[in-house]
């Protein structure tokens, strides 16, 4: 009884942090990735846990306060470029309105370090895509024209950063997978959309560990195509205004 009370009290103290770190279980299954390794070969995704919200500036501030090597000005250039956390007023300071906004201007390395500090990791591309194909009502909305169009519409709009949890909650209870900002995934550059995208279908696939030149399983799924193209343009130390992250965790069966 006392322990429960203590936990609750601690939870209140932790406030938004506890909420942000909240995860839900994504029951495993298979999905058809946008890139076709072989013709329409579905990929199995094991059950995993995923953060309900993208990591906020407030969450990330707490992290860098405790891990000085990830503070702006301290971080090694190979781990984060010059734009790293440049939107914060100071290395350990955020503007009040930024607290609930998703953290952006973070590199892959910093995101991964954040997740590791919590005993988690960045979701794999398959995990992220699997969770993100769910709409409010369907686990697989990838063929839902309305859902696709909504994603495309967001891609087409110039960026205006809103707060975490302000878009939609999917059937698993996860917020903001589309419509807020791009998110890092662990293996962001394993599917190759090269700069010369038009040659991708003739790339020597054995050159790449994912074996995946993009050869769209569904060429009409422009939304997914754009996501893969976006990830392919990244390097691990890049920090973008439109790119944040959330963490995942394996579930041991």
């Amino acid at each position: 009884m006392r322990a429960v009370f203590l936990t609750l009290w601690l939870g209140v103290l932790m406030g938004a942090s506890a909420a942000a770190a909240e995860q839900v279980r994504i029951p495993g299954g298979t999905y058809q990735p946008f890139y076709a390794l072989k013709k329409k070969q579905p990929v199995a995704v094991a059950s995993f846990a995923l953060d309900v919200y993208p990591v906020s500036n407030q969450d990330f501030l707490r992290f860098v306060s405790q891990h000085s090597q990830w503070q702006r000005g301290q971080v090694k250039p190979i781990f984060a470029d010059r734009q790293y956390l440049q939107h914060w007023p100071g290395p350990l300071q955020i503007a009040p309105q930024q607290a609930k906004q998703p953290v952006n201007h973070v590199s892959w390395f910093a995101a991964q370090a954040y997740c590791q500090a919590q005993g988690k990791k960045l979701p794999s591309q398959d995990q992220w895509e699997f969770a993100a194909q769910a709409s409010e009502t369907k686990a697989d909305a990838s063929q839902d024209a309305h859902f696709r169009q909504r994603i495309l519409d967001w891609y087409a709009r110039p960026t205006q950063l809103a707060t975490v949890g302000s878009t939609y909650r999917n059937i698993y209870g996860v917020y903001d997978l589309h419509g807020l900002l791009w998110e890092w995934v662990h293996d962001f550059n394993t599917v190759m959309v090269t700069g010369e995208s038009r040659e991708d279908s003739s790339l020597d696939r054995s050159l790449f560990c994912a074996g995946g030149a993009v050869d769209g399983a569904d060429p009409a799924n422009y939304a997914a195509y754009m996501r893969y193209a976006f990830r392919s343009s990244l390097k691990g130390n890049y920090t973008l205004k439109t790119l944040g992250f959330r963490c995942a965790k394996e579930i041991k069966s």
């Binding site: 791009w182 700069g195 010369e196 038009r198 976006f230 392919s232 973008l240 205004k241 439109t242």
Partner: peptide, 30 residues
């Protein structure tokens, strides 16, 4: 940096792979 998409450029005046497309593949803010 405000852009959402990576972009590049293929100039038809270029003699070379992709008209410069792969050499100019650029993420937002780069």
């Amino acid at each position: 940096p405000n852009n959402k998409m990576p972009h590049n450029i293929d100039l038809h005046a270029v003699t070379g792979p992709g008209g410069g497309a792969s050499a100019s593949f650029t993420a937002p803010g780069q």
